[in-house]
Design a protein around this nucleic acid. Structure first.
Lengths: 334, 334
DNA sequence: CTGTTAGCGCGTTCAC
DNA sequence: GTGAACGCGCTAACAG
């Protein structure tokens, strides 16, 4: 059995298809109550539902938002996606989602596809630097919002954490807890503006504070090298209380493993991470984190997008840069 | 600047729209090299891209797969989504995703929307029992694959873990490690056929084994009650080595918290969970789990769907029920 | 091999 | 209030 069309409903209700169209559009008010009832009845018995494809063809309104995620398995990305999806539905939009697994090539392909579906807006957590393609979208009038990561030469709103504030809050807390040497652990920052930003600002802020500090790049392949690097850092600051600050959730995971491998006691050597994770309270005595307001970030990205899609209907969010929340636990208590 | 149409390309290349259509369809071979070159050139300078909406309108092929997830923030769901998305792209389909937050009402809405977009197939991790709507889809010829959870009275392939095998593997392992009383901890099973199945089969299998056993329903609201229940179970079997088997990842998380609150030592009281999680190796001495092959499950769901969409092109996967992998850790070592 | 014609399902002028 | 006619961008017959 085929899906019924507007014409069939019109016939069954003995009205013109225009009336049916109006009923399902925003002009229901212009129909007489009698007609409305007949149409409602007919539509119901036929299980009719407007074809969004055909609708989009005519008006150019696909009611679709495209979203690209660099790593869909990352809990942080997931949490943000939750907020995005929620807000989309609230605006009556649907989410066409693409995971790029941090691969620029997949990102290219996905963007092409999203274009083919005439998405009305794009939310992008970039993996590479798809400037060209993004410019094409912008040129066509398709609004774009960047999530967490910037893209070179693309002038679009970026929604995410206030990275400077986050690093400062972390260093403040560590200082307060008496740690005097801090190692910043980060995944390789190549692809991510955020990783770069946090790393650079850590160095800057630590220097200003006259804090003994260093950085550690986590290479997935070479465990022993990073292990040694961490060990050295501790040894080099034998006389000072040391702490490690992790740039994101993955880094926290890796470093926690390193701590266990080296037999470091959490707290004696401080440990703190940006991004809150389910298990941070479980690894005793608990790992101190800076939690991001992920739902708010995701929702704001969509608000921001909708403001550009329908400027008159939707207000522009005032703030696109969010403050983290400090969650104190035992890992930063000597 | 508007998105250019097939007609504009045709004009610029001085050919008919049909030829352009053929070029971008599967009939490129039927065009002379000269034409191909002219079209390629024109399309490139115009940045042309076929409009998938219009395409779908004509042929009824939206190239869209709809996916409904009960809880998008659940790591298990996320892992499966990863596999689904990957396989979709491989088949040239895109993913319209909807999160229902375990709310039947949201599920209803999402299904309606997915219908409006003429999805060619549906992958559903059900929250409620949307029989009616699913039957509508089936009736229209839209194939459906169920993920992890069955839906009453809906005759569709279910892809997921072999729950019986999983429970047996768990009980085998626990017995092997010398545990003689087992408590099964599960989230409230109302909405999920899988939770029901595992719970029921646990009781059955434990009884057959003449194993001292009981069950514990985790109620998110009432922490103290569950705490007490766990405490009682241990006390009631003071003379026997006890273990807790957790029905899924969330249960493992909750129970691990309970263990810490009661000061239970992992291993002395055994702990084991279905679903592998990032942190299971971090909570010392590590939590033993049964890992699901999530990517394979997600991919198989799509293979299964594609087999129904295009029976001649795609083979039917032979197995829809997957065996877990036992990951032994310290929590099941006395 | 290539162009012509006719819809796909719907929204939108326009008249009535 | 209501209905007839046209076109959105594209593909599928059908010619040539």
């Amino acid at each position: 059995m085929r899906r019924s069309t507007i014409l069939e409903v019109a016939h069954l209700a003995s009205v013109s298809k225009t009336s049916v169209s109006r009923y399902f559009g925003d002009e229901r008010a212009r129909l007489s109550p009698a007609l409305q009832a007949r149409i409602a009845q007919a539509a119901h018995t036929l299980g009719y539902q407007p074809n969004q494809m055909a609708r989009g063809l005519k008006g150019g309104r696909s009611k679709l938002v495209g979203m690209l995620v660099a790593d869909i398995r990352n809990p942080f990305s997931v949490a943000i996606t939750h907020g995005v999806e929620q807000a989309c539905r609230q605006y009556g939009y649907s989410l066409l989602i693409g995971n790029t697994d941090n691969d620029p090539e997949q990102e290219r392909q996905h963007l092409a596809v999203l274009g083919a579906y005439q998405v009305e807006g794009l939310v992008i957590n970039a993996a590479g630097s798809p400037e060209r393609q993004l410019h094409t979208f912008i040129h066509q009038g398709t609004p774009i919002v960047l999530l967490d990561r910037e893209v070179n030469h693309v002038d679009a709103a970026v929604v995410g954490l206030d990275n400077h504030q986050a690093v400062d809050m972390a260093l403040d807390h560590l200082a307060e807890q008496g740690y005097q040497a801090v190692l910043y652990a980060s995944e390789t920052p190549e692809q991510s503006s955020t990783r770069q930003l946090r790393l650079a600002y850590f160095n800057q802020s630590a220097k200003q504070r006259a804090l003994s500090h260093s950085t550690l790049l986590l290479t997935p392949s070479d465990d022993t090298a990073t292990l040694k690097a961490l060990d050295h850092f501790i040894a080099d600051h034998k006389h000072l209380p040391c702490a490690v600050l992790c740039g994101n959730g993955n880094a926290t995971l890796s470093v926690t493993r390193l701590f266990q491998q080296l037999g470091l006691s959490l707290g004696k050597v401080g440990l703190m991470g940006i991004d809150e994770l389910d298990w941070c309270s479980l690894v005793l005595p608990g790992i101190t984190t800076l939690a991001q307001p992920t739902d708010a970030i995701g929702q704001t990205a969509i608000h921001c997008l909708m403001h550009q899609i329908a400027p008159h209907t939707t207000p522009m969010p005032t703030d696109l840069s969010f403050a983290p929340t400090l969650i104190k636990r035992g890992s930063t208590h000597q």
